[in-house]
Design a protein around this nucleic acid. Structure first.
Length: 213
DNA sequence: ACCCAGGTGGCCC
DNA sequence: GGGCCACATGGG
């Protein structure tokens, strides 16, 4: 499947950025939100010099809310990214790499302890900001696996374990696979409308709807 | 007037 | 521990 997807799509540069911290902030901002909206917020933050832990840690919360308004859920996200900055500042002197380079299990636990950071966000940070071997089991992934009849589960841990236990350990490979899943899902496996021509011969048309109703 | 977007945390039983 | 729900903007 990985090979077929690689043939089907250009493997785009996923999540390019200037710093690990920028990815950490972006990982929170992008929750349930279109990337275009996130990019505006990121640019606003960058313009105010707030994409560094020490600056963000002391940012005014009201100003922060206005700064990231475009990415939605801005009140809770403002608190979350400031809390994350505070944590990095206090525990690691503003050097997120010190957290990201720790033993992966404990690094993940620490990320999960932060408000606004759940499994998917924690794993995105580990993989994309830390270059650590973790697969991000986003909704798109389980949707594609289900539609292709490969695995019928929406349980995060189950989906993640399925991939991690039978795919490469190389973070580069894991990143590419994730990017390909998302590209496929966006192109062919949206809840609606159905494309009817999935390159993986999935069952897009037969009522496996996954959206709300 | 809908539906969707690279989720999370809080509450309920 | 699974099943709802609020959170909120911008684009199609």
């Amino acid at each position: 499947m990985y090979i077929r997807l690689q043939e089907q799509f250009e493997v785009e540069e996923w999540w390019p950025s200037e710093s690990a911290f920028e990815i950490m902030v972006g990982a929170i901002l992008t929750q349930q939100t279109n990337w275009d909206n996130v990019e505006r917020s990121l640019n606003e933050l960058r313009g105010k010099g707030l994409l560094e832990p020490r600056r963000l840690a002391h940012a005014n919360i009201s100003e922060l809310e206005e700064t990231i308004r475009s990415c939605g859920f801005y009140r809770q996200k403002a608190r979350s990214i400031k809390g994350m900055a505070l944590y990095i500042q206090l525990e690691y002197g503003g050097v997120p790499e010190l957290l990201l380079n720790k033993e992966i299990g404990s690094a993940r636990d620490e990320l999960l302890s932060l408000n606004g950071v759940g499994k998917e966000t924690a794993d995105s940070i580990l993989l994309f900001a830390g270059k650590r071997p973790k697969f991000v089991a986003a909704v798109y992934v389980s949707r594609v696996l289900r539609r292709t009849g490969i695995l019928d589960s929406t349980d995060y841990d189950e989906v993640q374990n399925y991939i991690e236990s039978r795919f490469s350990d190389d973070p580069e490979d894991l990143s590419k696979l994730y990017a390909l899943f998302v590209q496929l899902a966006k192109t062919h496996c949206r809840p609606s409308p159905r494309c009817g021509q999935c390159p993986l011969e999935c069952d897009c048309e037969t009522g496996l709807a996954q959206g709300k109703k």
